[in-house]
Design a protein around this nucleic acid. Structure first.
Lengths: 129, 129
DNA sequence: CCGTATCCTAAAGGATACTG
DNA sequence: CAGTATCCTTTAGGATACGG
């Protein structure tokens, strides 16, 4: 028997139960990717990250950080100060993700004119309303 | 006057109105990223893509493809066959995103053991219930 | 300061049916 | 085949209040 143990799993076939796909689902969301991009600048405290991601709620950020920590991409350290401070930092595993994330961030920064031109062309050809 | 025209916009400060951030929001979701990864293999038809992404609904895929097309990352071509066939293909702009996406896909494929180990360690230390 | 818990609303997204 | 439209359920996520 080898059916349920080996779901099809290639860059062309994202089976729902494929471990690669499940991992993809865990990090391919905007808050996770923005948190990791922010932490590329060094360890950050909770509220500092919160202020860096305009529009994120405390709850969403908390959930995102916890998931990133659980998956080993981020480490959490409680500083024995008063009041308590908590620092989040990229783990060694997380740092292996930085190259593609840096590239992606630069891409969004550098291709705004190209994308806006594409949108204008699209909107011109497709009835608005 | 230069206040509303220049929101803070760095890898450390994702202002909600920053064009880079808005573009980030448009592509940093799992379906968009999976579609682009699938189209890395060449032009694909609608239902072929659909079958490649187990769990995606016709509606979600349709919305995702339309947004990718509007942003200029993907081109849509109607083939004059009967019945009609529609082919989606990476645009030149979209292809500039491939390197980080390929890296990301390989990462999810290659780091499953590391992530699973991290999860086990995390779950061991944090009361499940 | 750093969260968790609760509530509640808004939005994403699936199922189904129907059109070009 | 490739969608659009409608309905309806599920989930994400914001606001608030409170605890460590």
């Amino acid at each position: 028997m080898k059916d349920s143990a080996t779901p099809t799993c290639t860059p062309r076939q994202f089976s729902a139960t494929c471990p690669s796909r499940e991992l993809f689902d865990q990090i391919a969301d905007k808050w996770s990717m923005m948190v990791l991009t922010v932490l590329d600048g060094g360890p950050q405290r909770f509220n500092t990250i919160r202020r860096s991601l305009e529009g994120v709620s405390q709850k969403s950020l908390s959930q995102t950080l916890r998931r990133l920590e659980r998956n080993g991409l981020v480490t959490r350290r409680v500083l024995a100060t008063a009041p308590v401070a908590v620092e989040y930092e990229m783990s060694a595993l997380g740092r292996t993700l930085l190259p593609p994330f840096r590239t992606l961030y630069r891409w969004t920064r550098d291709n705004i004119p190209a994308v806006e031109a594409a949108r204008a062309a699209f909107d011109a050809g497709h009835d608005p309303r």
